[in-house]
Design a protein around this nucleic acid. Structure first.
Lengths: 357, 357
DNA sequence: CTGAAAGCGCTTACAG
DNA sequence: CTGAAAGCGCTTACAG
C-alpha cells in the first residue's frame, strides 16, 4: 500500500500539533480555538468543551514562543544573581519564584559571578530573549550606563540589595546603616567599649559604606572613639572570618566584641576563635548580619541583624509585577527595616583571657 | 508643522529596531544582515563592518524570540529543582550555568517544592516555552508517565540524583549504596558495633533505598546484625537531625555512632548532642553524606561522603548538550563514584558517658 | 557574496 | 459567538 508522506507515522510525529489542527479537529476556527486556549469568557461552554477535548486528544502544546512573537509581549522575567552560594538568594528566589509563578510568569536565571563583563553579557542575552523585566543584584562596580539600553527598550529593572546611583531602576533593600547601629548599640549596652568591625570595604557601594557609617555613628552616640585599627577588611566568606579573627587576636589592645559584615564571616570568626583555643561568645562577643539558617544551629547561637530576605523577594516580585502591568512612576525605593535578633553569642561574655601569655 | 505619525519621536521610540532597519542603514539586504548577526564566515569583512556599525548606531537588539520561532529551534534549557535551600544545588547549578552559557544557551529555572502537581505544571510551562531540553531533579513519587509528552515532542530529559524507572531519561547521580558502605565500614573499623542510620525512608526512591542497602550490607560484611531500632526515619533537615538524636539517646541500648542520610541531618545531630550536654564526636561518632561547605567549619569537622556535586553539573550539562546536538542512543546512566572524607567527627570517639544517670 | 519571496504559529482587529 | 485576513521579525532555500 502506498502512503502519501503526510500520512506516514514518522512525518506526522515530527510535525508539531498546531492550533489549526485543534480547530479542525474540534470543527471550529483557529480564532475560536485561540480564545479557548487563553481562557476567554466569551465562548459557549459546549464549544469550550469540544476544543479542550481535541487538545487532549491530539496532545497539543501551546506555543508561547509564537504567541509572544505575535503579540509582541512576553511572560518571562530575567533574574541575575552574583552566585548561588550565598544563602541570601535562597529565600529571595523562593518567594520571587512563587509569586511570579502564580501570575503565570516564568523566569530566566543568570549568574554574573561578580564579573562586570559577564553581567553585561547575561543582561544582553536576556534582552535578546525579550524578557519583560529584569531583577538584578548588580556586581559591585556596576555603572549606571548599564541601564541605558533597558530604558530605551522600556524594560523595567529592579535592583536587589545594592543601589546604583543614576540607574533609574527600582530598588529593594534594607537600611544597612540602621542595622549596624542596632548591632553596635546592643554591644555597647552589653558593656563593650572596644568593638571591631570585620568585613569588606568596597568604596562606592552603599551596602558596604552604610554599614561602616552605622558602626561609627553608634559608637559616637555613646561618646566612644572609632579606632581605625579595629576596622578589619577581609574577604566576605568563612575563610575571611577565620583569618580576620586571627589578626584581631594579635592586636596590641584587642577588642572584646566583633560586629561582622555578614553571618558567614561571623561563623568564620566563631570557628577561628575555637581554632585558637578560645570560647566564642564567652571570650569574645560576636554579632553577625543577615540571619541565615545556620545562625540558629551554630554553638553559640549567633546574635545577628535580620534583614528579612524573604520579604525582599515578596516586595521585588510585587513591584516588578506592577511595572510589567504598566505602572509609570519615578523609581521606587523599598526599604525593609532590619531587626536585631539577640542570641547567645553576644550575651555570655566573660572576658578575654590573657592573650600574651 | 504637521508630522506623519511615523516621524514622531514617541512613535519611533515605541517601535523596535529590526534587522530590516539595520540592513537599510548599512545598505545591504536583510538576509545579509542576518548572516552577519549570526557570525557567518562567508561575509566580506567590509560588509561585516558596515552592518556592525549600523547595529551599534541604531541600538539594535537581536530578537531571539523571532529567530527561534522562524527556525523552530530553541536555545533555552529548562531546569527544575525541588527547592533552593539544599546546598546540593548550588555547586550543580553553578557548573551547569557556566557550561550552558559557554555554548550560548540560556536557562529557565523552575521549582517543584517537592510537589508532584507543581512539578507537572512547571514542566508543562517549559514545554510551552519550547525549551530544547530539561534537567530535572524529580520529586520523590514521580511517575514515568510524566515523561510521555517529552518523548512525544522529542525533548531530551536528564534526571539528577533520583532515578525514575521507565522514564527513558538520562541520569546523573552517584552510587549511594557504595557511599553508605564506605561510611559504615569506616565506622566499624573505628571499633563501632552499634551504628544508627538516621534519615528518610521513602520506599521506591532509589537514592533512599540504596543508602539503607549499603548500610545493611556493610554491617553484614563484618558479621554485625542489623537492629531495626537503629534505623531512625526523620525529616531531611536540621530539625530532623536534632529530634532524631534525642530519640536515639533514649534508646535502651544506644548506638555509639550515627551515619546520617545527609550532612544537614548530621549537623542537626551535632547540635542536638550539644543541646543534651554531650560532646559530638567524643561521645558519639558522626558521619554525614554530601560534603557541603559547612562540614569543614563545624566543630568537630564532619566526616562525610563526598559525591562531587560540581561534577554532576559538569556531566549533566555535557550530556544534555550532546542530546541537544542530536545524539541518539538509549538512556545513559552517569555514576560519579563517591569518596569518604575522614575528619574529626568520626575519629575522636572516647565513649558514651552513662546516659541513665 | 547578495536579493526577493515564503512562512514559522500564533493574535488581533474587523466583519458577520 | 465565529470566520477570514494580515502580520509579528526573523531564517531558509533558491536564484543570481
Amino acid at each position: 500500500m502506498v502512503r502519501k508522506k503526510e500520512e506516514c507515522g514518522l512525518a506526522s510525529r515530527d510535525k508539531r500539533v498546531t492550533l489549526q489542527d485543534v480547530a479542525d479537529d474540534a470543527g471550529v476556527s483557529r480564532a475560536t480555538a485561540s480564545l479557548v486556549v487563553r481562557g476567554s469568557k466569551s465562548i459557549k461552554p459546549s464549544t469550550h468543551k469540544k476544543v479542550i477535548e481535541s487538545i487532549e486528544k491530539l496532545g497539543y502544546v501551546y506555543d508561547r514562543v509564537a504567541a509572544s512573537f505575535r503579540s509582541q509581549s512576553s511572560s518571562t522575567v530575567g533574574i541575575v544573581i552574583t552566585d548561588f552560594e550565598n544563602p541570601f538568594y535562597h529565600q529571595m528566589l523562593t518567594k520571587v519564584e512563587d509569586m511570579l509563578y502564580e501570575q503565570q510568569f516564568t523566569f530566566l536565571l543568570g549568574m554574573s559571578s561578580e564579573s562586570r563583563e559577564k553581567q553585561e553579557r547575561v543582561l544582553e542575552t536576556m534582552l535578546e530573549h525579550r524578557v519583560c523585566g529584569i531583577i538584578l543584584t548588580p556586581v559591585v562596580d556596576t555603572q549606571p550606563t548599564l541601564f541605558n539600553k533597558l530604558r530605551a527598550l522600556q524594560i523595567p529593572a529592579l535592583l536587589m540589595g545594592r543601589e546604583v546611583a543614576g540607574s533609574g531602576a527600582d530598588y529593594v533593600g534594607t537600611d544597612y546603616r540602621l542595622g549596624s547601629q542596632l548591632a553596635v548599640r546592643h554591644l555597647v549596652e552589653q558593656g563593650h567599649r572596644r568593638i571591631a568591625y570585620i568585613g569588606g570595604m568596597l568604596p562606592g557601594n552603599t551596602a558596604y559604606q552604610e554599614r561602616i557609617d552605622g558602626y561609627c555613628s553608634a559608637l559616637q552616640e555613646y561618646g566612644l572613639e572609632v579606632d581605625p585599627k579595629l576596622i578589619i577588611p577581609t574577604p566576605l566568606n568563612r575563610e575571611g572570618g577565620i583569618r580576620a579573627i586571627q589578626e584581631v587576636l594579635q592586636l596590641e589592645n584587642p577588642p572584646t566584641a566583633c560586629f561582622c559584615h555578614n553571618d558567614i564571616i561571623a561563623l568564620g570568626v566563631t570557628i577561628g576563635l575555637r581554632l585558637q583555643g578560645f570560647i566564642p561568645g564567652e571570650h569574645m562577643a560576636i554579632v553577625g548580619f543577615d540571619n541565615i539558617l545556620e545562625t540558629e544551629t551554630v554553638e553559640p547561637k549567633l546574635t545577628t541583624v535580620s534583614v528579612f530576605h524573604d520579604q525582599w523577594g515578596v516586595e521585588a516580585a510585587r513591584q516588578m509585577l506592577d511595572r510589567i502591568g504598566g505602572l509609570q512612576s519615578d523609581p521606587v525605593k523599598i526599604i525593609i527595616p532590619p531587626k536585631l535578633i539577640v542570641r547567645k553569642s553576644s550575651v555570655c561574655f566573660k572576658g578575654l583571657p590573657n592573650l600574651k601569655a
